[in-house]
Design a protein around this nucleic acid. Structure first.
Length: 254
DNA sequence: TCGATTTGACCAAA
DNA sequence: TTTGGTCAAATCGA
């Protein structure tokens, strides 16, 4: 039974990926009629629900897991999140209450867009080892793969997580995030419409927030999404849905 | 002036 | 040798 469910979920994952890609393409096509866009959005939402239902067998209310373990020996465990913005206009600074400092950017083999590397601003002052990698998905410019490594141990993270709007996962400094109306961010990063420019992602979400047209998903698994990093398209195929508070600190078995 | 970003170089793992 | 991750100098903006 479990195998059937897993297969179903896997199939739905594929459908979901296609639905999202279609939605993204229609979104990007100014000539597309509104009805088509609406239909795409409904399609994606419907598949979303189906996936949740399929996965609810093992996880009531949604599939969630974080035991992310990366293939590469350099990175043992990580939390993977996919962040989607509603439109290019939403590519504003994504502030999760934490301070991230970009320290590098790299073109990844097989990926359309470069990967950006961030670490906690308080790395040196407080020894906070949290880092994250952000990469725009190949098939969907509005979708970003965010992989978190290490735990936030800085005072700012503790304060942020203590706030009412911020539920766990403390270990990774993941919080809920409102994509559509980003609050003032420490660093004002503008998200260019030009896809080749990598995302400066000062702070990004992972605790999934799901406004009407924005979503993100957490995926525990093989973080290296060679070939563009569209999570739903990846071999491990394991999508983990938003379950605020689900994260467990011990996930960080690096 | 200080802090953040950019970007080429360097290093380690596969 | 290739590739991913990080470092650090140069640059930019508040």
């Amino acid at each position: 039974m479990e195998g059937t469910t897993a297969t179903l979920a896997s199939e739905l994952d594929g459908l979901l990926a296609m639905a999202r890609e279609l939605e993204a393409r229609v979104d990007g096509d100014q000539g597309a009629p509104g009805a088509a866009r609406e239909l795409c959005a409904e399609l994606a939402a419907s598949v979303d629900r189906a996936v949740r239902l399929a996965g609810s067998g093992g996880n009531a209310g949604g599939r969630a897991c974080v035991n992310g373990r990366l293939r590469s020996g350099r990175n043992a465990a990580a939390v993977r999140a996919q962040v989607r913005v509603a439109s290019m206009h939403d590519l504003g600074p994504l502030d999760d209450g934490l301070s991230w400092r970009k320290y590098g950017q790299k073109d990844i083999l097989g990926a359309t867009y470069p990967r950006a590397y961030f670490r906690c601003t308080h790395r040196h002052s407080q020894g906070c080892q949290a880092t994250k990698q952000v990469q725009r998905a190949h098939a969907d410019p509005l979708l970003f793969d965010v992989v978190y490594h290490g735990a936030h141990t800085c005072a700012q993270a503790a304060a942020a997580l203590a706030g009412p709007e911020h539920q766990p996962p403390a270990a990774f400094g993941l919080e809920q995030q409102q994509q559509s109306s980003p609050p003032a961010a420490p660093q004002g990063i503008q998200w260019p419409a030009e896809p080749m420019t990598p995302p400066s992602f000062p702070s990004s979400p992972a605790g999934c927030y799901t406004p009407a047209s924005s979503w993100c998903q957490l995926t525990g698994g093989y973080g290296y999404a060679a070939g563009g990093g569209l999570g739903a398209d990846m071999e491990f195929d394991e999508l983990f849905w938003n379950t605020p508070g689900f994260f467990e600190p011990e996930v960080q078995n690096l």
